[in-house]
Design a binder for these strands. Structure first.
Ligand code: NAD
Ligand code: NAD
Lengths: 216, 216
DNA sequence: CTTGATTAGTGAACCTTTTCACAAGAATGG
DNA sequence: CCATTCTTGTGAAAAGGTTCACTAATCAAG
C-alpha cells in the first residue's frame, strides 16, 4: 500500500473540474496528455495520481470522461450534495451566498447566521438569517448543514468556531485571518488572499516566478 | 548559491504576519522555536528559510522582531504600497473593495472597472467605477496600479485579461474559474474556493486529513 | 576567565513528490 | 495474424523539500 500524497487528493478536484468542462462540451474520451495540457500539469503525474485510487483508464485508448468523473467524485466524496452554513453575512458573506457556482458543484447554503440584530430575520439572496446563538436549533431542522463557512469579523472568529464545533460540525472553511484553535477531529481550511498577493509582489520585485501553477 | 524553494518565499509572508502580531504586542525578541510554535512550523525550517535571504538573527539570542520584520518586507517587496485595480464590481468585487485589511497590509485600490453601463460613473466604497475599455487612460493618471484583481464573470475573464496585459500590467490575482492564457512575463495567481471545499469533503468522507497546515 | 545554557546558521541525511522510461494492453489497417 | 500506433500503469531515477544534528556565536553567572 502506498501513502497517498495530500496534494494528489487536491489535484483530483482540479482534474474533476476539467473533466466536467469536457463533459459539458460533449467530449467522451480524453488522454492523460490532453487532460494535462488543460490542467497545466504533467501527464505522468495525472496517471500516477489516479493510480493511487484505482485503474480508471484503458491502455491504448485513454479515459472515458464520464466514467472517470464519476469515479473521482466517489473518491472525493462529492457524488452528493454538501450543505453549507454561513457565519457572518457581511460583504464577503453576501458574495459567497450569491455565488452560483457553489450550487453547480453540489454545495448549497442551507443556513446563514449573523450576530447583527438588524440582519437577523431578514432575507439575503433568498436566505433567511438566523442568530448565531440558535445554531443548535437550526441544525435540527431543514437548516442542517455539513460544513461551516466562517466569514465573521476577526474578533468573533474563534468564539464562533467554538460554537460551531460544539454544535457537532467537523469542517470549517475559514476566511478570517485568525488561526483557529479547534479539537483534533475538526478539519479547517484557511483562505487568505493576502498571501497570494504577497507572492505576486515578490515575483514583480525579483522577477522570479513564485506563483502556483494550480489554483488553491 | 542555493536555489530558493518557491514555497519558502510563500512562508515568509506567514512569518511576517506573525512577526507583525508580536510587534503589536510589544515583543522585541523572538527565537525560531517560539516563532515556529506560533506559525505551526518547524524551527529548523524557519532558520533555513531565512538563511536563503541573509543572516537576520543573533546566535544565542534570537531575532529582533522589528529588524526581522523589516528585512522580510524588503525581501518580499512589501516595504512599499502596492496599488490594485479591480475588474468586475459584482458581489465579490464589492467585498474586495471594502476589505479593510488590504489597506492595513499595504494594498490599496486605486481603480475599479466594470462593463455594466449602469455601474460606470457611480461610486462603490468611495471608489468611482470606470469602463474597462478606458484602462489605458486611467493608468496614466491617479488610477495607475500595479496589480490587477480579476473578478468579472467567467465569460469575460480571458478578454479582460488581454486588455490588462496590453495596458502593461504584469500581475493578476484571478478569482474567476478560468485558466487565463497570458504571456510568459505576466504573473497570475489563481484563487479557487471550491478546491478548498473539496479538500474538506474528502477529509470528512475518508477521515484522513488533507487540509493544509498553512494558509494559501 | 571559565563554565554552562542558549540559539542562529548549515551541511548532510532523510523523506516526499515529480518526472522519466518502458512494459503491457488495446485498436487499426493490411 | 502481424505490424504499427496509441496510451495506460508503474518501477526507478531525479528533483525538490524538510528535518536532524552539530558548530559557532552570544550571554550570564560564578
Ligand atoms: N471582504 C473581503 O474581501 C475579505 C477577504 C478576505 C477575508 N475576509 C475576512 O472575512 C471576514 C468578513 O469580512 P467582511 O468584509 O465580510 O466583513 P464585514 O464586517 O462586512 O462582515 C462581518 C459580518 O460578520 C458578522 N458577525 C460578527 N460576529 C459574528 C458571529 N459571532 N456570528 C455571526 N456573525 C457575526 C457581523 O455582524 C458582520 O455582518 C473578516 O474576518 C475578513 O477579514 C474578507
Ligand atoms: N461571489 C463569490 O463568492 C465568488 C467566489 C469565487 C469566485 N468568484 C468568481 O468571481 C467572479 C465574479 O463573481 P461575482 O459573484 O462577483 O459575479 P457578479 O456577476 O456579481 O459580478 C461580475 C461583475 O463583472 C462585471 N464584468 C463583466 N465583464 C467585465 C469586463 N470585461 N470588465 C469589467 N467588468 C466586467 C459585470 O458587469 C458584473 O458587475 C466570477 O467569475 C466568479 O466565478 C466569485
Amino acid at each position: 500500500m502506498h501513502k497517498i500524497p495530500n496534494i494528489a487528493v487536491i489535484r483530483l478536484a482540479l482534474y474533476a473540474k476539467h473533466l466536467e468542462m469536457l463533459h459539458n462540451d460533449g467530449v467522451e474520451l480524453v488522454s492523460s496528455v490532453k487532460l494535462a495540457k488543460m490542467c497545466g500539469a504533467n501527464p505522468a503525474q495525472i496517471r500516477k495520481d489516479l493510480a493511487y485510487f484505482g485503474q480508471f483508464g484503458v491502455r491504448g485508448v485513454g479515459y472515458y470522461v464520464n466514467d472517470l468523473l464519476n469515479a473521482l467524485k466517489e473518491v472525493m466524496g462529492t457524488n452528493r450534495t454538501w450543505r453549507l452554513g454561513l457565519f457572518g453575512v457581511g460583504n464577503l458573506g453576501k458574495a459567497l451566498l450569491g455565488f452560483e457556482q457553489f450550487a453547480q458543484r453540489g454545495f448549497i447554503f442551507t443556513a446563514a447566521f449573523d450576530k447583527d440584530i438588524d440582519l437577523v430575520g431578514t432575507e439575503v439572496q433568498g436566505m433567511e438569517i438566523s442568530q448565531s446563538e440558535d445554531i443548535k436549533e437550526v441544525i435540527k431542522g431543514p437548516g442542517c448543514f455539513d460544513i461551516a463557512v466562517l466569514a465573521t469579523g476577526a474578533d468573533r472568529a474563534q468564539d464562533c468556531a467554538m460554537r460551531i464545533v460544539e454544535a457537532g460540525i467537523h469542517a470549517i472553511l475559514n476566511f478570517t485571518p485568525v488561526r483557529l484553535v479547534v479539537p483534533e477531529n475538526v478539519f479547517v481550511e484557511n483562505v487568505d488572499f493576502t498571501v497570494r498577493l504577497h507572492a505576486l509582489c515578490y515575483s514583480l520585485t525579483t522577477g522570479s516566478d513564485v506563483t502556483q501553477r494550480h489554483p488553491r
